[in-house]
């Protein structure tokens, strides 16, 4: 029987490593820089550099490389579709023919770089989530968005909502698992019957789950109000974020690395690509 694993994708892995201890703002900015870099340098050879970076991150965060790579698993299917589509639908000089379809040399290049790019985007985001606690993450995001408060954008409320939502994801998984088991032990059957019957068989899961979620939400709202939560009121923090020299240097190093990757992509690897295209 397949039950939901409470350890869902991209979850925080507590630790005390260098990356864990960086300011969340630094990690969020770093992720944005990385993603930009990925878009600007996504030739096949560039990925040698990106893989080096993954190895460095793995060492600095104390998280096994396999665990880091595994965070790309949820999008594997999407990647596969992207690869297949690009492989067959990119015009160019054909390499292999499969009936009416043909794989072109250009298709091969585009498909693999698109697939890898997508995969690495998710993996880099995964590293952020694995090394940053949900609390720290939403704190960092709130601070980064705080300039928008001038435009009356409710940043602190947004951050609070996000914190609560993130906090409840694992709980919801656990509860779903429990309700699922309870109904299975009362003979619920999700696998047989037609589409309608199968859809209906989820009612015994969904109704208790909704009831539970509303109850939880109400309890939480009452608890927050009884502790005088006022949306948007100025408040101090228990663990104020501190930007240290370490964060600046980490960001600087990363920027240099990304610029280097872009430079390689533009000037060094070009030669290789020209050579490949000429073959």
């Amino acid at each position: 029987m397949r039950f939901m694993s409470s350890l869902s994708i991209g979850q925080f892995i507590p630790g005390e490593s260098f990356i864990h201890r960086l300011d969340p703002r630094c990690k969020i900015i770093a992720t944005i820089i990385l993603m930009t870099g990925l878009f600007m340098a996504s030739g096949i050879p560039d990925f040698a550099l990106w893989i080096c970076l993954l190895v460095i991150f793995s060492t600095l965060s104390g998280i096994k490389l396999t665990t880091i790579l595994r965070s790309g698993r949820p999008v594997l299917f999407l990647v596969l579709i992207t690869v297949v589509l690009n492989l067959f639908w990119t015009p160019g000089s054909p390499l292999v023919r499969l009936g009416p379809l043909s794989v072109t040399r250009e298709g091969l290049i585009v498909a693999s770089s698109m697939g890898l790019r997508l995969l690495f985007l998710v993996i880099f985001a995964g590293i952020l989530m694995m090394t940053t606690s949900p609390m720290a993450f939403s704190d960092g995001l709130e601070r980064l968005m705080s300039p928008m408060a001038v435009l009356r954008f409710p940043t602190s409320e947004m951050a609070m909502m996000m914190t609560i939502a993130l906090r409840f994801i694992p709980t919801l998984f656990e509860e779903t698992d429990r309700i699922l088991k309870a109904q299975i032990s009362r003979g619920a059957d999700f696998e047989s019957g037609g589409l309608m019957r199968r859809a209906r068989s989820f009612i015994p899961i969904l109704v208790p789950l909704f009831v539970l979620v509303f109850q939880r939400a109400e309890n939480l709202a009452v608890a927050m109000e009884s502790r005088c939560y006022v949306p948007g009121a100025p408040r101090t923090r228990m663990n104020p974020l501190r930007w240290s020299g370490r964060d600046s240097s980490a960001l600087a190093c990363l920027s240099v690395f990304v610029l280097f990757a872009i430079f390689c992509d533009r000037y060094v690897f070009k030669i290789y690509l020209t050579w490949f295209a000429a073959q």
């Binding site: 309700i179 309870a182 032990s185 003979g187 015994p204 969904l206 109704v207 009831v211 539970l212």
Partner: peptide, 19 residues
């Protein structure tokens, strides 16, 4: 499935499974 019928299980806080 048949064995599961023979061994009825009442969960902790079973009223949370009402639907």
């Amino acid at each position: 499935r048949e064995f599961r019928r023979r061994v009825g299980l009442v969960f902790q806080y079973p009223e949370t499974q009402f639907f």
